[in-house]
Amino acid sequence: MFVQGVGATTLDDVLAASGASKSQLYQHFDGKDALVRAVIDHVGERIIRRERDALGHVSTIRGLYRWRDATVQRNALRDGAYGCALGSLASEVSDHDAAAREALARLFGEWQELLAAVLRRVQEAGTLPADASVDQLATGLMGALQGGYMLAQTARDVTPMATSLDMALAYIESRTIS
């Protein structure tokens, strides 16, 4: 589903991939939109848990660079072909499915809040100036991350993602007090 994209996926594809019968599938899901929402919940929960583990105790810019390394490395295992599962869903469903869009917006909000919490801890340690807007920096970093995933997915090469994260982190670092 993530390789092909939601738009190009039919229920028949899902059946072929899962080995379930159509009646079994319909017993669980009320059509494709419900299935997509179940996928969003499932993928979202997994990603938020992973990011909470990775970011929950980070309180330095160095720690953010280590998170960047792990994120790029994980994506490089597949030449970036799958991108970010949530980002791929976002780029496809947001127009025509308001409930899916809201669910995705909530999940991205949670993810971004984990980044903002890291930057807040950096700020509390006195490394970022008190007047730096943590929410703005976290949003910018999330934009660079998601955009990086998309560029890597198109290029089938993880390099543009590594570059965009490095550049965004370098900007945040440039705001720190040495």
């Binding site: 934009g143 660079a144 990086g148």
Partner: peptide
């Protein structure tokens, strides 16, 4: 810049 346009647009 391209990543920011891409990712920012999605968000």
């Amino acid at each position: 810049i391209l990543a920011a346009l891409h990712g920012g647009c999605t968000l």
